[in-house]
Write a protein that binds this DNA or RNA. Structure first.
Length: 573
DNA sequence: GCCGTTTTCGGCCCGACTGTTTTCAGTCG
């Protein structure tokens, strides 16, 4: 089994946790965490890079030592240092570190003083009242641990962006109505438009902060007040989502927005640039000595470290600072660049609206074209079309196009890729279409090699155009199937096929990282909503979000092209 | 453990809140 990047990253993170408990040099600990982030977020697999003879120490935050450790891990499946550390420090202490309120020092004390080496040990100790007797602990800390353990599952749940929006919207409205409040902005990973968010980070400006805080913690949906300070408070809502509110004066808005938007790694890097220029950057501004020299806007903050403003979606410490320094920031795609949607369904299969209704809805959104791509026959649960029904639909689209003005309906199909790599309908029918959208709906559990070859074989058919939702993941519900995306991308590039970024908020498949990989390889993608109703067409914005996180520009996306140019791109014959 | 238009050694972001403390350590983001 090839080693996945996540396995390497998880091991580095666990190692960092245990070293931290052992009291290792904090900067060494951070080095492991930084490396974990680089590996986790890298589009290509470390195993693949090594096989290609690449020097991993060229990657950011990976030096000679960690490059060697990754090589050992890939070759042997083992990280000897981790095994060494686990021999003297229980591995589960890394889990205990994830209990909110417990960090390395407390975990170390609990382990050394009370021999607590698991979550169950901790629960028992918290109930028995032993924890309060430890130096540095007390009654309140013990009660806090007991309470946090009730909700503790071992991993921090992340909610889908669309759900976070539903939770944030009324809360922002509520905060805006508080007297003295000027701006309310949801920052954090929400503003960076990550596909999921772990919490909501809300920034507000106000003349006086205390009254805002008092109203915030009194919000109807608050389940637990975790902290309640003058300028910062944290609560957990009934939905389980944690919300931080930070209030700053208006002159600090830009600096605070930058700080609260993150990512943490990006912030640290920007602050480090400041240090080199003898500047101190915090959430109140940019300071030269005691004097604030910037902070009202984010632009000011970046300018003081010699950089142009960087779009929030790029702030992941994935090379955006270097690109900004060198004047190479991408001109990210925007919703208005999209000229049409290339994947949607009608009542003919499992959609809710008719051909005409879908076409009208697309026209209302200013599109020049809309492709109808109902399911093919193999997807029986979705009432997939056989050849006869597809031919009938083709006729219906031709007749509709004669009546429509300003928008062109394209004839397509979401064609099932069967497990042996053949396509679900004969070429004699497919050739009557404008193009095909091909996807996997069954046999998700094939081994990586087989799954990859299945799609490669399908791609050999000249009527294969766009590979839809390429990993099949459903966020928080279904893991992606095992497939070599890089190989698929390379094959698509060679054959003139494209990959879809499916904009359904449950899918967002390709991921941001995969989009970046495609871009780096020179492969363009289609951003499509897979709409099953007219209102689903609005999911396009979620696709745009992820495309932007993947550094995509209009030229990297095929449905920013005119109909004429698009037809040319989709013609393989 | 990483990194270098000051450095191959000596740095490594910065502040708020809480609880247990008589001035600060731990945690978090």
């Amino acid at each position: 089994m090839p080693i996945h990047n996540t396995e390497i990253a998880d091991s580095f993170d666990r190692l960092a946790d245990l070293l931290e408990v052992e009291g290792a040099n904090p900067f060494r600990v951070r080095a492991y965490r930084n490396a974990a982030r680089t590996v986790r977020g890298y589009g290509k697999s470390m195993a693949e890079l090594l096989a290609q003879g690449e020097d991993l120490s060229e990657l950011p935050d990976i030096g000679k030592d960690l490059a060697a450790k990754i090589r050992t891990f890939v070759d042997t499946g083992k990280l000897p240092l981790l095994e060494e550390v686990e021999a003297r420090t229980p591995a589960a202490l890394s889990t205990l570190m994830k209990v909110p309120g417990l960090g390395p020092k407390r975990v170390k004390a609990l382990y050394e003083e009370l021999n607590i080496r698991s979550v169950d040990d901790l629960k028992r100790a918290a109930r028995s009242g032993k924890i309060r007797e430890l130096a540095g602990f007390g009654k309140k800390t013990e009660a806090m641990i007991r309470q946090r353990l009730e909700h503790f599952t071992g991993e921090t749940p992340r909610v889908k962006l669309i759900i976070a929006e539903e939770i944030a919207r009324p809360l922002v409205q509520y905060l805006k109505q508080i007297e003295g409040v000027k701006e309310v902005t949801v920052a954090g990973s929400y503003r960076r438009r990550r596909d999921t968010v772990g919490d909501l980070d809300i920034l507000a400006t106000a003349t006086r902060s205390s009254p805002v805080m008092d109203r915030f913690v009194a919000y109807d949906e608050v389940d637990e007040i975790i902290s309640h300070g003058k300028t910062r408070s944290t609560v957990r809502l009934h939905s389980g989502l944690q919300v931080d509110l930070r209030v700053v004066p208006q002159v600090s808005y830009g600096a605070a927005l930058h700080y609260f938007t993150g990512s943490k790694a990006h912030n640290i890097a920007v602050r480090t640039l400041g240090v080199k220029k003898k500047l101190k950057i915090n959430e109140y501004g940019v300071f030269k000595g005691d004097k604030r020299i910037a902070g009202r806007t984010e632009e000011e903050v970046y300018r003081k470290v010699g950089l142009p403003w960087i779009e929030p979606e790029l702030r992941e410490q994935r090379g955006e600072l270097e690109a900004a320094r060198d004047g190479n920031l991408p001109a990210l795609i925007r919703q208005k660049d999209i000229r049409g949607d290339l994947h949607c369904h009608t009542k003919a299969s499992d959609g809710h609206h008719s051909l005409r209704q879908m076409a009208q809805a697309a026209a209302e959104r200013g599109y020049e074209y809309l492709a109808i791509s109902d399911h093919s026959r193999h997807v029986t649960v979705a009432n997939g079309l056989d050849s006869k029904r597809l031919l009938a639909q083709i006729g219906a689209i031709d007749r509709l196009n004669e009546k429509l003005d300003g928008i062109k309906v394209l004839k397509a199909i979401e064609l099932d890729i069967l497990s042996d790599g053949t396509l679900d309908l004969p070429d004699s029918v497919l050739k009557k279409l404008d193009f095909t959208v091909c996807s996997v709906h069954y046999k998700f559990d094939l081994p990586r090699k087989q799954q990859t070859e299945r799609v490669l074989r399908a791609m050999d058919n000249r009527y294969f155009n766009i590979f839809a939702h390429p990993t099949g993941r459903l966020i928080n519900e279904r893991e992606p199937y095992d497939i070599d995306l890089e190989k698929i991308m390379q094959a698509a590039l060679e054959r003139g096929c494209f990959l879809e970024l499916n904009a359904q908020p449950d899918r967002l498949d390709l991921t941001d990282e995969a989009c970046k990989l495609a871009k780096d390889m020179g492969l363009r993608v289609a951003i499509s909503t897979d709409a099953h109703s007219t209102s689903d067409l609005d999911y396009m914005r979620f696709g745009i979000d992820q495309a932007r996180r993947g550094w995509l520009e209009p030229k990297d996306v095929i449905n920013t092209q005119s109909l004429k140019a698009l037809r040319k791109l989709l013609d393989r014959t």
